[in-house]
Nucleic acid binder design. Structure first.
Lengths: 209, 209
DNA sequence: GAGTGTGAAATTGTTCACAGCG
DNA sequence: CGCTGTGAACAATTTCACACTC
């Protein structure tokens, strides 16, 4: 398959969210225009995005809601379960652990780790927090697909190195540092300080536009 | 000022994070190469990004760490305090409320709202959760700069409409829906389901590349 | 007629390469 | 001599326009 832009993949995920809403509302078909309006895109963009993967629509009608959702799930690889380990049992780790929405979508948290002896051994939403020292042993026993780094910035890079060495190929990073990893490893960043700062910039500059 | 790409603004925020690390390490100058290595960029990109706003470096030497950090803070508008209201006292609202890092960077949470009578009136990290019914009155009394939507997807659009009507021009949206807002309002999205899904896609496709 | 699928055009964003300065 | 600043070349992405199908 030809190279597909990251922006296209992210939009597919948004389209899927909207399609699931359509399913709940009982719609059976949806046009690229409708999909665009609530998927933060344009009709042409929707059609282009989908055309990279095949032609799923019917001319004059639109796209079949159920089938398109299924196709996008297949494209994104959501047909199977993903094993997730979470590093850091603080605010972020706790929030993720107690959210059932990820498990529902196939991302199941296998284990939660921390360095803090005060947290290790405590239960967090039904899972016991394990000592980070066990990380490599645990991963050797049961490989994980995705690791979440929910620690402060300082230990994040070293943890990323350990995770990569242990075979992890996808990291969701909440720490406010840019992780340096080999090209075979994918990192997705959630950086709230950065989001606040882009909002601050927008507030200050769009007065001038 | 000429139009600046969102991607440039986001990188400035990353450069700033690294510059603060440099300050702590006692460095006084930094080259575009060093900045690029830990800012997820390239040397040319760093220089280009900065050149949109002025010329801050010294040829043959690099950039003065302290001064450049200060300049970027000014560009992003981080010189002042921003009033933040948080909608939703669940996992996300709690996590934000208890994180001192945002207040440190000038983003102070003024109020937290919820609809759930079981949560309203309870204290959350020193702040009492207010009934969402008071939102408009409160904002009329004390305007806020940024609103955080930390609710489930269903009420998110309606809340966004209320916030916009009440004069909010910047929204940080954690709900898994694309908000429709007037062009004068800026929305930043943090969509964890989407991040997991892009990681899933990467895991399935980079085997083929 | 309504709405998709898709090359081609336009735009936007990134990289190059080198002049110019400290 | 090293490293910035920047126009010009290049690459990627988005938008357009229209042929085609239901």
């Amino acid at each position: 398959m030809a190279h597909v832009a990251l922006s296209t993949v992210r939009r597919l995920s948004l389209y899927l969210q909207f399609l699931e809403e359509c399913t709940r509302d009982g719609l059976t078909t949806v046009s690229s225009r409708a999909l665009a309006e609530r998927g933060g895109s344009t009709p042409a963009q929707v059609r282009k995005d989908l055309s990279f993967f095949g032609s799923f629509g019917k001319r004059g009608i639109g796209y079949p809601v159920r089938e398109l959702a299924e196709r996008i799930r297949a494209i994104l690889g959501l047909g199977r379960r993903y094993r997730v380990v979470v590093i850091g049992a603080g605010r972020i780790g706790s929030a993720l652990a107690s959210y059932p929405g990820f498990a529902d979508r196939g991302f199941a948290i296998d284990a939660i780790y921390d360095v803090d002896p005060a947290k290790v051994g405590r239960a967090l939403d039904g899972r016991v927090v394990r000592d980070i020292a066990h990380l490599e042993d645990d991963l050797r026993r049961t490989a994980a697909d995705v690791a979440v780094i929910g620690t402060p910035a300082e230990p994040a890079q070293e943890l990323a190195d350990r995770l990569v060495a242990a075979g992890i190929r996808a990291i969701l990073n909440f720490a406010s540092v840019t992780l340096v990893v080999p090209p075979a490893v994918t990192v997705a960043n959630v950086n709230m300080a950065l989001e606040f700062e882009t909002l601050a910039f927008a507030l200050n500059w769009d007065g001038d536009r």
